[in-house]
Design a protein around this nucleic acid. Sequence first.
RNA 1: GCGGGCGUGGUGAAAUGGUAGACACGCAAGUUUUAGGAACUUGUGCCCAAAAGGUGUGGAGGUUCGAGUCCUCUCGCCCGCACCA
Length: 912
Amino acid sequence: MSNNVAKSAKPQKSSFDPTTIELKWQSKWGSEDVYQPVLDSAKPQLASGTTIAEAKKQNKIEKDRHLIKGSAFYDLTMFPYPSAEGLHVGFSYTSSGIDAYARFERMLGHEVFEPIGLDGFGIHSENHAIKTGSHPIEHAERTEKNFYRQLHVTGNSYAWKNKLETYDPEYYRWTQWLFVQLFKSGLAYKKNSPVNFCPSCKTVLSDEQVIDGRCERCESVVEKRDLEQWFFKITDYAGKLLSNIESLDWSEKVKLAQKNWIGKKSGINITYKVAGVDETVTIFTTRPDTNFGATFIALAPEHQLVEKIISGVVKIDAQIVRKMQAYVAKATNKSEIERQAEGKEKSGVFTGLYATNPLTDYQMPIWVSDFVLGGFGTGALVGVPGHDKRDFEFATKFGLEIIRVVVGKDGDASPIAKIEQVQEDEGTMINSGFLNGMDIHKATEKIMDHIEKEGYGKREVAYHLRDWLISRQRYWGPPIPMIYCEACAERGDSWFMTEEGKNHFKNGEWRVKNREMAGWYPEEVLPMKLPYIKNFKPMGTGKAPLANHPEFYETTCPHCGGKATRETDVSDTFLDSSWYFLRYLATDLKHIPFPMSKEKAKTFPGATPEEIEHADKRRTWFPVTMYIGGAEHSVLHLLYARFVTMALKDMGYVDFEEPFTRFYAHGLIIKDGAKMSKSRGNVINPDDYIRKYGSDTLRTYLLFLGPFDQGGDFRDTGIEGMYRFVKKVWKLFSGMENGEWRMESSTEGLRFMHQTVKGVTEDLEYLRFNTAIAKLMTWYNFLAKQPSLSQEEVETYLKLFAPFAPHMTEELYQVLKNKEWRIEKKEKDFHSIHMSAWPTYDEKFLTQVTVTVAVQINGKLRGTVVVDAKDKEDKALIEKLAREQESVSKFLAGDIKHVIFVPGKILNFVVR
RNA sequence: GCGGGCGUGGUGAAAUGGUAGACACGCAAGUUUUAGGAACUUGUGCCCAAAAGGUGUGGAGGUUCGAGUCCUCUCGCCCGCACCA
């Protein structure tokens, strides 16, 4: 029966042509700037000034949403890097998510800013150019066009007027400006040090770009090279980068990845006198409680004292020096991979020197060993073989003494002879003088107090995080805008001698004072344009291609006017992306890089009063409200962007410390169970699917695949199914023009609508797109069976579906609008609805209350009871009863008139 | 080794502590079609010929009137970090 009725609501004919519909709306949205927010007039993000994370914690989010209509909502996705192959479907995934979210937020009444751009500078793009045999500049021109075309057909509600490209001189002049500001703040310095070098990319890499000893991009084994490089002093912010993490509304996983990478360890630096020579060795340890058991000292091959011995400053036996030279040379040439391949087999050379342990007067032999890391702590450790497995391995190999100082749970107090006996856990101190009998935590505090009092040690915090290596010996990046002047350096007359420089460092030591630093920065003539050169390929000599071009690097000193040279390295591509979210809001400002206070904006040469005004007003958009991107950037981009923001805050350019209030890491899209790769031939080009099914279908399908943070498996049969569904929706509603609809929804219809609205709203808020879409499908199944639909149901359905399939829903709305909707007149187009009205039915359904009690029916205990309350008194009564189990049983025994028990259905109680 | 996460049908997966498997894919049968495709209808956790019934969220316990969900242990898988002193 219902089948026949259902048919009456369905179309006589259907023609669903997604391509035509989508192009039509895309061009309309574009030409009318529908999604271009007025940047200057948005209200601040939250009226109270609290962050969304805080509001959420206080459960105020729903309430606040209504209070802050018209407030700025900065909805950002990580911009893609353009490749010859075109847009990756992984990006379609992100962009579908961010756009569904943007459209949802817009309906809640926010001003939403959803910008897009291209991360076109960097090794990635340059390698693509080399592979295709083209010049990076031509490569960029070509891919830019293709990428923007592909980005357009997704139907995303991008603010197209604010697009940017990192290789645009109007962009990278500010990247260079940023470099200069960091330099002026003492956060950029140049240093000669062993660095990671990728022999294939022929450039140095930052620590973060080395994964398992291999290059992040090409997976070549990374070598160690001594090169003079530019670094950013991100370690200055290690503490803040770590402590701020707690306040962020990010997934625990990403937060943890950052915490681990920063790697804070609290301990103590202990300085030991070296017997017989005028030297000391400072070690870092987190376990000073075991110090009575210390029997040796081990130095990293890079350690200063080792250098002093090798260079003859500290004189020891010549034969040992030769042995050490050989060992150090071998160790420093080893790549990470080689070191791992050798396993944990310890090696080392005894220096013949001893250090005295003041606690015991034990003469600890000083060794050099490559299991000690030059970059952690002080590059030296004190060996306690009884209570550290690595120390034990070292001690047994070289016959060093092992002393037990902790007894663990097993009560074993015998001498430690086997590795299984090494006691690294909790326990009680023995053989440790005044520490005896204490547990290790108490002993740790006690001994640190003692050492500090005796004056040979100081509590210290060590971090795993190292400074950010910023220079690259490549072509395709912003030239580092520094000028070296030999003459000024000779005179000791460099930037550091200017009033500005002196003021900057007057309260602290100068972090950077070596001679290589002497020079000038041409701040007022930025951008330092990247010239077109033919031989742009990396050379592998430790110099960048620009070093072959005197016409580039030869210049005059901005200070003395003499001959000077420019830096020829370019900066890391991660610098480009560390601040792009700031620039989106100022792409039309020629003289100011990003929104900032009037006071600061005025300091930019050439800034017009209008520009200063814009810069000031647009600050309401910061920080980024919602950021969606890949989890692979957990410790790279996200850490760098946080660091840059903090540095800019300290310089007074921005007034927030954390750039991304909320970050959501989406999952990975695989294809038919395998990772996409060209060699497998299973790379998805979104173009093919958009052409065949339309963007609405692709978007909805991608988001339906599975939980957004887990990605999913892309299957052609799956997208077919989604296409069927989209078509069904089209047919149902486009058929409405000939069908009937009624004034009011049925009770069941209302309940369905209420449930779906509530469910989908909540799902969208937490980016559970897959379940939101499933709810829409369920509701469709219900609607399709109805003999007729109400205008409210149809309109609500279209609104709820719009975040996923914006084109089709808008087209349907237009079709239906022209067919005598018996509703209040709609003068504006559907996109105005996008911006105004998210349906809520809470008020209407206040009468329905869910009570959770134990109920016995037919001798069986059952669960949830849905009670329909007739009026406010009923509702209050039921809520009160729900709070008190005891009264509920009474209530159920006496006051309920009917109990309707439908097998397979929820229990319904009708209140008198 | 440290840290985090996950184990539910043939598949992707749903389930504020309350009918386990929503929704979709796939599969099966049917209607329609010259055929293929498409569309529509019905069915589909497992066991049993069917019904009745039983059983069922990696495993073992526990809390609870009630556990996929909370707690303890255990097995298996995935992802970070790692010779970090």
